[in-house]
Amino acid sequence: MEDILLYSSLSSLLLLFIAFKIFLQTRTQHKRLPPSPPSLPIIGHLHLLKKPLHRTFHHLSQKYGHVFSLRFGSKLVVTISSPSAVEECFTKNDIVLANRPRFSVGRHLGYNYTTLVSAPYGDHWRNLRRISALEIFSTNRLNMFLGIRRDEIKHLLRRLSNNSIQGFAKVELKSMFSELTFNIIMRMVGGKRYYWEDVKDVEEARQFREIMNEIVKLAGASNPGEFVAVLRWIDHGGLEKKLKGLAKRTDVFLQSLIDEVRNKEEEGNTMIDHLLSMQKSQSEYYTNQIIKGLMMVNATLH
């Protein structure tokens, strides 16, 4: 009983400390922030978020204007619904607003915020953008893989044809287009396809599909711990543990693709081949971690 009372008291003191800290931050920044509705201690305005979200934001904008601020727990959020203000954010103030929130997904799956989509604006991010623009997404580089895109589209049309060979049939296209895109990207990246027929390594394909399914599931999961520190410290929902395990499996998988290409002495014409060839002359810009980060971005942002 004494232990329970002790833990309850400590928890209450901790919550009061966090609430007081947030209150002080709000008071300090209040004069510089856009208008904001009344908030609650610790959770801020999270209680106002009701689906559909766009209607909630529209209702708030009618009361507080086209630019207003909210607090999602400890995170400050500014909502903008004015086209002219949005344009200014992407032009005049694009560098100021370039960074993304530092969520757990970026820490674990983004190699501690070092990938193109999670890295803060700076020299490292500019280097990643340069590599992506010149070595991956350039017109010349993409044109080299035109044959792959044509071949995968033929595979898709063949599957659709087989489904309707006995007459009209309903087809779920969303998953087919997703698998088509994965096949195109991974053939461009590593020379392998992981969906449909002609899969050379069934076990490797199974691992890839499981990893991608988990990334989509966990990356899009709602994590209250990102906004309320107490929930993050106790790993509410176990998301942090799941992300750590997934990140380890993903890193092992990507590293195995790099090692396989390296052992073949870069005989192919994939993106990994090209990046490894660049690694020989510019090792500081084309480390294994950077290459894996680029592979991750290509695979998950399809």
Rank of each mutant, 00 (worst) to 15 (best):
Y64D: 04
T139Q: 11
F182W: 02
G147S: 15
E152I: 05
M144Y: 08
E135I: 00
L173C: 12
M278Y: 04
G220T: 12
S118H: 08
R149K: 03
V78F: 09
N213H: 14
R141C: 07
S118D: 10
A205Q: 03
W233F: 13
K292L: 09
L246V: 07
R193F: 03
A98K: 05
I148P: 02
F208S: 06
N298P: 00
I131V: 14
K174G: 11
L49H: 03
F57N: 06
T287A: 11
F57W: 04
G73P: 05
D3E: 02
V78G: 06
T181Q: 10
Q25E: 15
R262F: 01
L231N: 02
S178E: 07
T181C: 06
R158V: 09
Q166L: 12
I272W: 01
A247N: 08
V216C: 09
L146T: 14
Q279K: 15
N143W: 00
E88V: 03
K170A: 08
E203W: 00
E197G: 01
Y64K: 00
E226K: 05
F57I: 09
L160T: 09
G106T: 04
T114Y: 07
G73C: 09
F68N: 05
L40W: 07
L128E: 00
T287Y: 11
E267Y: 00
G237E: 01
L49K: 06
L48N: 03
A221W: 02
M1P: 06
F57T: 06
I148H: 02
Y111T: 02
Q279D: 05
I80A: 03
L257T: 01
K244N: 08
R102H: 13
V216N: 14
F253S: 05
F17K: 07
E210T: 12
Y7G: 02
L14A: 15
T250E: 11
R262W: 01
L142N: 00
S39C: 10
K217G: 00
T300Y: 02
F23C: 09
N112C: 04
L10M: 13
I18C: 13
K244F: 07
S283D: 11
T181A: 15
R149Q: 06
P101A: 07
R130G: 01
T26V: 11
E267K: 13
R141H: 09
P83Q: 00
K280M: 03
F145H: 13
F208W: 04
